[in-house]
Design a binder for these strands. Sequence first.
RNA 1: GCCCCUGUCGUCUAGCCUGGUCUAGGACAUCGCCCUUUCAAGGCGGCAACACGGGUUCAAAUCCCGUCGGGGGCGCCA
Length: 504
Amino acid sequence: MQGTAHEAIFMNNPGKWILPTAYDIFMMKMVHVRFAPSPTGYLHIGAARTCLINWLFVRHHKGKFILRIEDTDTARSSDKMSRGIIQALTWLGLDWDEGPIFQSKRIEIYRNKAEELVRKGKAYYCYCLPEEIQKRKKEALDSGKNWIQDRRCLRISPEEKRCFELHKKPRAIRFLVPEGEINYNDLIHGHICVQNENIEHFVLLRSDGLPTYHLSVVVDDIEQKITHIIRGDDHISNTPKQILLYQAFGVEPPEFAHQSLILGKDKKKLSKRHGVSSVLQFKEDGYLSLAILNFLAQMSWSPGEERIYSLDEMVNRFSLEKRAKGNPVFDLSKLDWLNGQLISAMTADELFPYVKTELKNANLWQDKYAKEQKEWFFRLLNLLKERSRKIKEFAVRGRPFLSDDFEYGPSGVEKYLNDKRLEELMQKLMRDFKEMQTFTAENIEHALRKRAEKEGLKAAFFIHALRMLILGMSVSPGIFDVVELLGREKTIRRVNAYFKNNPG
RNA sequence: GCCCCUGUCGUCUAGCCUGGUCUAGGACAUCGCCCUUUCAAGGCGGCAACACGGGUUCAAAUCCCGUCGGGGGCGCCA
């Protein structure tokens, strides 16, 4: 009933309608979706994308979003990683309505469910050691046979079994895969069919009493009334196993949607190997969360025009059916562009907290930028934002504005500060600056061009040299704005200081 | 080896379901020009793709079959 009704609503298949009760309608409309990371590492970019897709879907359908931490692999999971994942999600702005629910606190429940399946004859005890199975698997494969699972413990004699139990031989619980085939309709891929004979008798409960992924995920998804499971393509082959489990528990399976996997440049599934860092590393590197979100969302999805979308806009436009099936390759150049677009479009006010953090890290921050020099500081932000692609660049490009402690770029010195008459000419320009009534960009430009004309030189001669002298770099915002912002006194002081320290 | 998924410019994608309007559109990157004071930004332009082979059809990127390529899975990991 549930599945059919969902199909009717979400697959646009009105032919399948049957009359639901009021309760059914309520349940049908309430989409329950979960994001279930495993805290065996930081939240990496692929997982963040999965979370985003789930989040967009559930917000679009005004459902409930559950965060579940799948930490049944006690050896590899850690609290620290859980906290890191939560921190990353918070930074991205992907909020949840329930949880985090830790599976490690529910072990007893899974254990009982596994035993229940054994009692029902849908699962069985397996006394094989993992090493034994591995050996048998290798032998089968080496002799050219296909290996699924030899189901040895299904056939052991009662005597043998009694003996194993007597000696307390460790036992796991395996699922007894019935004959037949599994069909399901993937919301992204369409119809998928797998023969049960190709599904191994997978383990539900390990010999140490801890559940495996398949068991815990299905038990939780049932209990938490998950209606849509949206995850990576790497789970496609797990889905039939899980559907089998739903059937064994007598529950209608939810809808499944498997989305493409992000690939590295070598076309392999993106992983730590590719040096692609955690979500939080992107934050460190000066990316804005909205840029990351746009970047991730627009892999396998095209919301329309090529631009930045707010989360609300993405939520409105989102649809699983519009998702592309092919695996996208991870390429930072678009992210950089997106980030640059965002920065340029931000107001100084919006930029302020980000840049403040960055400047603090670079030891360039002073409290006066938030107080008496706030207006000046905002002017600086507006000048720098046009040509910045990452927040980090504000510290680099902004340094000579904020501190006298900066370097002179050697190639720029070589190129623009080598003229024999430079000092003399610059002193003349500085005199012009001193005589100026109001020190504005307009007046500065006028004075500089006039000076150049008098000396029979191109304005560019003064412009490039002046930029090097006062900023130490050959790249900056428009020089007249720069000089105005830096101020008359500091400009003259820097020019003089340079010649004093570099005589001749 | 077996099973499943997938295949449009270098990259991200639109188009595919509902064949003709596709000499395949956009964006990023790249190249060139303009603007100019450097770098960006902006404007204009260039390069660049339907994996291949069969079919169906008056007509195929679009439908069917096959081949090849790519990815994922085949754990007492999740």
